[in-house]
Design a protein around this nucleic acid. Structure first.
Lengths: 334, 334
DNA sequence: ATGTGTTAGCAATACGTATTGGTAAAGTGT
DNA sequence: ACACTTTACCAATACGTATTGCTAACACAT
């Protein structure tokens, strides 16, 4: 910056004023131009370390992730965060949780030492996480997860799984299905629970008795969907399966095929997640509910950068019904 | 740090010496203990901004990714990098390339302003990338990609796709297959090309004429694998399919089923990538070649932190054959 | 001509740490 | 007893920027 000042024939503070566009201090138009030109010629880049040292203002935010890199779609959260904070000149530190709680504490304290604006915790599947020791020293935002400890007011961003579940179920009911089975994921999983609530309420709204509709639970894997669907379809003949996620839906699809049935002619299948390379690639392509990962990340980024403390409470982001071919009206007479 | 010094009854430099474990300056054992105690009591964390300002030594490395977050498995590269550099106290900035070259240049210059040790470029699929304007100012390492411009000596980390391709093919030949079809990805893709070279050489080593073995090309999607396999199987009756990746292998699997055949009884299928939640979840589980993403990331991290300029040239990391159920000996008489 | 206000710019300083060059005190050799 | 080395510590400074006074110089009204 001194070099720039010398080249422009002014003092260092003047350069600082010009580059920071401080309109409250007066700089002659001509001087300003000279400074900008000199800075450009020297390809000057302000030293962020010095800046944040002097102004005690952070230029980074920390992101602690949990299995996000190993999961296909949840990385969109990261992208969303980034797109939200980049325009403000922030850069993201990303630390994938290495497993043990200790290393995470290390990571957090490392981030704090770097002087981050705050820490965003992001997880691949909605679940509680152990809050880190240093967490309370900084502003934190939780995406797709929440602090394990109750009673503390945290800023949490979640997908509206309840509405999403209702959406999926309603789509089936509105297509004319009456005998619909809920193929859930882990029973005590937050997402599964919420989606089931949505399913139940949607059934009521459709004039059906939710207790008459079978609801079964498994894991979130292809194999689990396959097994569940197989046993459900052998037991009776539902016309639609509302699945815990797209992978389970693929499993259900395989089960349908292996029983000599066809989707959606004999059985309609509805997924959840809109997982890239899965939902749109199988035959038939899955009607599913898109998880708004990108938007959730963006919201988290905005909350992090907002003035004052981040809004505590649960911020729900809407899911979206994606219509493809795996849902159709039930066969006449079914 | 001044507070720590006051509490321990010493001067600030002494604290600095103790905390940095500078054994070349002498500090009385008792004093050292007092300082450490005081630092712990005050929960002291050195200010990284000040550190890197003063010592002009970076504590961060930049990672520019390309579709990694939206791809399932490549995120492991990130994890590998992280695990390699974390012990040295480094933190990763991660910037997902937003699309246009301009934003990437911005990102790079942003990273350089932050004073990173260097920039690692990571891509989801091996391919050339446009080098950024600022790239030559810093040390750079490329993972799964390489600079577009020829003639420059760059430090590049790649999977040994040639050996991997040979591995997959050899597995088929050693199981006894003679009529093996290569179901490639994009024809002018680097990975596809190398794997095909491996396939061809493996065929020669197995005493077969590579030109007699069909080799077809498509995309890397499930649908593409499905179509290719369908037409190949209708045309003749190969006993094994060596696929461009696991998703194509899944497509091939579907094609086999839809023709009333069974895998591996009638047709063996070999994938590539060992994609989590795919390769091990389908029925039968895929015999495939694991891409060493974690190791590649770790190597990149080590190269970045190595003394002197990073070793130029191509650093190949071995793939690994993962044996599951989709490969078996051909039916007797086939 | 004097006072008042405004504009343009600079000198000096602070941020928190690492490093350099010292200085007392204690120890060692003659 | 003297010079010389070693030990243990501290005062001062530098890193690159943002910010706070301050000072000229000039314009305008009285």
């Amino acid at each position: 910056m001194k070099d720039v000042a010398k080249r422009a024939g002014v003092s260092q503070p003047t350069v600082s004023f010009v580059l920071n566009d401080r309109r409250d201090v007066s700089v002659a138009e001509e001087t300003r131009a000279r400074v900008l030109e000199a800075a450009a010629e020297l390809n000057f880049r302000p030293n962020r370390a010095a800046q944040s040292l002097r102004s005690n203002r952070p230029y980074t935010i920390g992101v602690i992730t949990d299995q996000i890199v190993s999961q296909p779609y949840a990385g969109q959260i990261l992208l969303g965060i980034q797109q939200a904070v980049q325009p403000s000149g922030y850069v993201c530190y990303v630390v994938e949780r290495a497993g043990t709680a200790d290393t995470r504490d290390d990571a957090v304290s490392n981030l704090l030492a770097q002087g981050v604006a705050g820490v965003i915790y992001a997880s691949h599947g909605a679940n509680p996480i152990r809050a880190s020791r240093g967490a309370r020293d900084t502003r934190s935002v939780f995406v797709n997860c929440w602090p394990h400890v109750d009673g503390e007011e945290a800023c949490v961003v979640l997908a509206d799984e309840y509405a999403g579940g209702a959406m999926a179920a309603t789509a089936a009911f509105e297509a004319g299905h009456r005998d619909v089975v809920f193929l859930g994921g882990f029973r005590d999983d937050y997402a599964c629970h919420e989606r089931e609530r949505g399913f139940v309420d949607a059934a009521r709204r459709a004039g059906l008795d939710p207790d008459k509709l079978r609801r079964v639970y498994g894991g979130y894997q292809i194999g689990s969907g396959y097994q569940l669907a197989l046993s459900v379809l052998r037991e009776s003949a539902p016309t639609a399966l509302v699945c815990g996620n797209d992978r389970m839906a693929v499993g259900a699809l395989l089960a349908v095929h292996s029983l000599g049935l066809e989707c959606p002619r004999d059985v309609s299948i509805i997924g959840y997640d809109d997982q890239p390379d899965i939902a749109d690639q199988v035959h038939p392509a899955l009607t599913t509910v898109r998880l708004p990962h990108l938007e959730m990340g963006a919201l988290a980024g905005r909350l992090m950068l907002a003035d004052g403390d981040p809004d505590p409470g649960r911020h729900l982001v809407d899911c979206e019904l994606v219509i493809r071919n795996s849902l159709a009206a039930p066969r006449a007479g079914a």
